[in-house]
Simulated assay, not measured.
Amino acid sequence: MLVGSGLGLSGMAAGMAGTHGLWLALSGALLLLVWLLAANLLLAKQHPVVPAVTPGAPDEAQIAHHLLLDASPTPLVLVAGRTVRTMNRAARRLFATDDRILPPPTPLFDRDATHLRHAGRNWRTDRVEVGDRSVVALIDIESEERTAEACASAEMIQVLGHEMLNGLVPIVSLAECGIVAAEARDENPGLLTEILTTLARRAEGLRRFTEAYRELARLPLPLRLIVSVEDMLNDLARLFASRWPDVRLSVDIEPGLWVEIDRDQMNQACWALLQNAVEAIELGDASSGMIDIRASMDDNVLTIEIRDNGPGVPPDRVRGIFRPFYTSKPSGSGIGLSLARQVMQAHGGTLTLISPSPAIFRARVPRACTSNDGVLADRV
């Protein structure tokens, strides 16, 4: 009886923790559930008893099972043949039924379907096959997106507040020193000028940070046109050679690649990746610096890889490299990689670090146009 009650209470605790986003509490409740189930099985093996219940009455395990399902905030449905039934309270509330769902959403019968739209919301379908039946969990995509946006906003505010505070504290201190120096300028006439010069320099640094933040936060929507990847990367190579003549840049482009992108934004993203590679090389032996950039098309997806022979990304910094204003380089701004990833995401693509040493970044842009029709090319 105690084990069954514990199962029920643990299930309810897990449901409440999941609803309120208390992930640590959710993990603890789930671990307790596993322990209680194991203990229940062990007791059943050691002391088998015939339950004194009336025929057809649910036992403790069934009650705990139903309590756990009902406490889950994720709608669960059972698909059997052409019939779909609700499995918990969240599903009954979503489909406004106590049992069968009529009419059932068509994507629930498609084992390859991953999404459906119902009640004006988009849902991701996570499916588990149990024989000829399927248990489908419906994940609220919009809720996930809101949670991700809230986390990103909180992180951005934290970074912004940290950087602003770091910039303002010395400015306030210098201003106070300037007041003291102004009152005693006869004793040291050059001190006030020195303080004001330092003050101006720190204020300028804070202004540059604010401009960089505004640039990152106001990335416009891509203006897509048909672009030759070869022309775009060759132009970047010429600019690179004039900017960093001592670093060798190798360009390998699959011929005949045409994509529908915002060329200015993509140039900016690729340039940020190249600059990041140069800054990494400068941490080592810059005289032997080499950067490779490769572009290819696979399954109608443009892939651009940039690698360098620098010291690589330290393991403890891999997770933070795309974070805004995060940098480990003396001359880095912490903007380039974050901005490059935003550009790729705005194009429906991705930017990932596929190897920390040697550092290899891979940008992928889907729905690329493979046509090199002259009329389309004239639009560039």
Score class of each variant (00 low, 15 high):
129 E>L: 08
133 R>T: 14
111 R>T: 13
108 L>V: 10
108 L>Y: 04
93 R>F: 07
126 D>T: 06
82 R>L: 13
139 I>W: 08
97 T>Q: 12
134 S>W: 14
94 L>Y: 03
102 L>S: 12
81 G>Q: 03
125 T>V: 14
96 A>H: 06
138 L>K: 04
130 V>I: 11
118 H>S: 08
81 G>W: 01
107 P>V: 08
91 A>N: 05
89 R>V: 13
104 P>I: 02
106 T>Q: 13
120 G>H: 03
127 R>N: 00
141 I>N: 00
88 N>R: 06
112 D>G: 13
124 R>C: 12
96 A>Y: 00
136 V>N: 02
118 H>W: 15
140 D>A: 07
101 I>N: 01
82 R>D: 15
139 I>C: 06
109 F>K: 04
110 D>N: 14
127 R>P: 01
113 A>E: 11
133 R>C: 10
86 T>S: 03
112 D>C: 11
142 E>A: 08
121 R>Q: 13
115 H>T: 05
93 R>S: 11
100 R>D: 13
107 P>I: 05
98 D>K: 10
103 P>Y: 10
99 D>C: 03
141 I>C: 03
107 P>K: 10
143 S>L: 15
118 H>M: 08
128 V>A: 11
103 P>I: 12
102 L>G: 07
88 N>K: 08
128 V>W: 11
133 R>H: 11
83 T>W: 01
90 A>T: 02
109 F>E: 02
108 L>W: 05
127 R>D: 01
128 V>K: 11
122 N>L: 15
91 A>Y: 00
107 P>W: 08
133 R>N: 11
130 V>L: 12
105 P>Q: 03
92 R>Y: 11
118 H>R: 12
130 V>S: 13
84 V>T: 01
90 A>C: 05
102 L>E: 15
82 R>A: 13
120 G>F: 01
97 T>A: 11
134 S>L: 13
101 I>R: 00
125 T>K: 04
105 P>N: 04
130 V>D: 14
87 M>L: 15
98 D>I: 05
87 M>H: 08
139 I>V: 14
84 V>A: 01
94 L>D: 03
89 R>N: 07
115 H>D: 05
125 T>I: 14
139 I>N: 09
117 R>I: 10
110 D>I: 09
141 I>W: 01
93 R>E: 12
118 H>A: 11
122 N>D: 15
122 N>Y: 12
137 A>W: 03
140 D>W: 02
108 L>D: 04
101 I>Q: 00
103 P>G: 09
136 V>R: 01
137 A>D: 05
108 L>T: 08
88 N>P: 07
135 V>E: 15
126 D>Y: 05
81 G>P: 02
117 R>V: 12
89 R>W: 08
99 D>E: 11
106 T>M: 11
102 L>P: 05
114 T>Q: 10
126 D>E: 13
107 P>N: 12
88 N>E: 07
90 A>F: 01
89 R>K: 11
136 V>L: 09
83 T>C: 08
141 I>V: 10
111 R>C: 07
85 R>Y: 04
126 D>W: 02
114 T>D: 10
127 R>Q: 02
85 R>C: 04
125 T>N: 05
115 H>A: 04
132 D>S: 14
139 I>K: 10
130 V>C: 09
120 G>S: 00
92 R>T: 14
84 V>L: 02
89 R>T: 15
112 D>T: 15
134 S>E: 14
141 I>Q: 01
136 V>G: 02
108 L>A: 10
136 V>I: 15
113 A>D: 08
117 R>H: 14
95 F>G: 00
